[in-house]
Amino acid sequence: MSLPMNQLGLFYVVIAVVCHSAVGNRFQEAFVMNCDHTFPDGVSYDLTPLTRTAGRPDYVGRDKIDDLYYMNVCSNVQEIPKECRAFRKEVRSPVYQVRNDSYCHWLGLEGSHQWDYIEPGSPYVGVQISYSNGEICEEGVHREVRMQFYCDHMSRLGSIADYYVTQEDPCVYVITFPTPYGCPRAQQLSKGWVFVICVCLLAATYVTAGVAWNVKNGAPLGTSALPHLEFWRQLPDLVKVRGSGWRGALRVAR
Rank of each mutant, 00 (worst) to 15 (best):
F177G: 03
S190G: 09
T176P: 00
Y173W: 10
P180N: 09
P180A: 14
E168L: 15
G192I: 05
V199E: 09
A204E: 02
C171Y: 01
A212V: 11
T166W: 02
W193D: 02
I197D: 03
Y173C: 00
V174Q: 10
K191I: 09
G210K: 02
A212Y: 07
L202I: 06
L202A: 14
V215H: 08
I175A: 12
T208V: 10
A212M: 13
P180R: 15
F195E: 03
V165M: 07
V215W: 03
F177K: 07
G192E: 08
L202Q: 08
C171F: 05
G192H: 08
T176W: 09
V215T: 10
L201G: 08
T166V: 15
V215Q: 09
Y181R: 15
P170F: 06
T205R: 01
Q187D: 13
Y181A: 06
I175Y: 12
W213C: 09
V165N: 04
V194C: 02
F177M: 11
P178D: 03
G182F: 11
P178N: 07
G182A: 13
R185L: 14
Y181V: 02
Y206A: 07
T176H: 15
Y173G: 01
I197Y: 06
S190L: 14
A212P: 00
V199H: 04
W213Q: 05
P170R: 06
Y173H: 08
T176L: 08
G210M: 05
T166I: 13
C200P: 00
E168A: 10
V165G: 12
T208W: 04
P184C: 15
A212E: 03
W213G: 00
L189N: 06
V196N: 05
V174H: 02
V199D: 02
C183G: 06
V215D: 03
A209G: 00
F195N: 11
L201S: 03
N214K: 03
V211N: 06
A186C: 01
L201Y: 12
Y206P: 00
Y173D: 01
T205N: 09
W213H: 15
S190D: 07
G210W: 04
Y173T: 15
G182L: 10
Y173P: 00
F195P: 00
V207D: 10
V207F: 11
Y206L: 05
A212D: 00
T205K: 06
A203I: 12
P180E: 04
A212T: 03
Q187I: 04
A209F: 11
P180K: 12
C200R: 06
V174L: 13
E168S: 14
P180Y: 13
Q167E: 15
S190K: 15
I197V: 14
A203G: 05
A204T: 05
T205Y: 04
T208K: 05
V174D: 02
R185S: 10
P180I: 13
V207N: 02
A203H: 05
F195H: 01
T205G: 05
D169Q: 08
V165D: 08
